[in-house]
């Protein structure tokens, strides 16, 4: 398990059958019970996924959303993509090309997007802010 700040990245096993789902869920269980879990599943190794695997993904999503967190999928292998499309769940998840993008996406407003020297009201009041500064 890799962590990147408060976001946890987990590698999904190559084969997601009933047995693998069980052991994966054992590992994942404590995380899902935490407050506001933020999870990324790295699906790059997935080669085969049974119905149980898809159900597990949906169950995980349900659990994290219940706790005000989120679950995102990253680096989907073509096999995983085909199965998720086939099972009609591909649109349920937010997916990303790689884990870095998925982790970054949790910070919806990047800190460096707003210049530090600009007053917070500048954008809100527009010209009014400029007038106040002039006076």
């Amino acid at each position: 398990m890799l962590t990147s700040g408060p976001v946890v990245v987990m590698e999904v096993p190559e084969v997601l059958n009933v047995k693998e789902v069980h052991s994966f869920m054992e590992e994942l269980g404590p995380l899902l019970e935490s407050n506001r879990p933020r999870v990324v599943f790295d699906c790059s190794q997935v080669r085969s996924m049974e119905g149980a695997g898809v159900e597990m993904l949906l169950r995980c999503l349900e659990e994290v959303l219940k706790r005000d967190g989120d679950l995102k999928l990253a680096a989907l292998s073509p096999e995983a993509e085909v199965i998720l499309e086939l099972m009609r769940v591909s649109r349920v998840f937010e997916t990303f090309q790689n884990c870095e993008d998925a982790v970054r996406s949790f910070n919806t407003i990047p800190a460096d997007a707003v210049p530090r020297d600009t007053p917070w009201y500048a954008n809100v009041f527009g010209d009014l802010g400029v007038l106040k500064q002039a006076s």
Binding site: S48, G51, E79, E81, I83
Partner: peptide, 18 residues
């Protein structure tokens, strides 16, 4: 057996319900 032409994937579906 499932061959997906868009993703170039050849899959063996092990779940008989699928």
């Amino acid at each position: 057996h499932l061959l997906n032409l868009r993703h170039n994937v050849n899959l063996e579906i092990t779940d008989p319900a699928v």
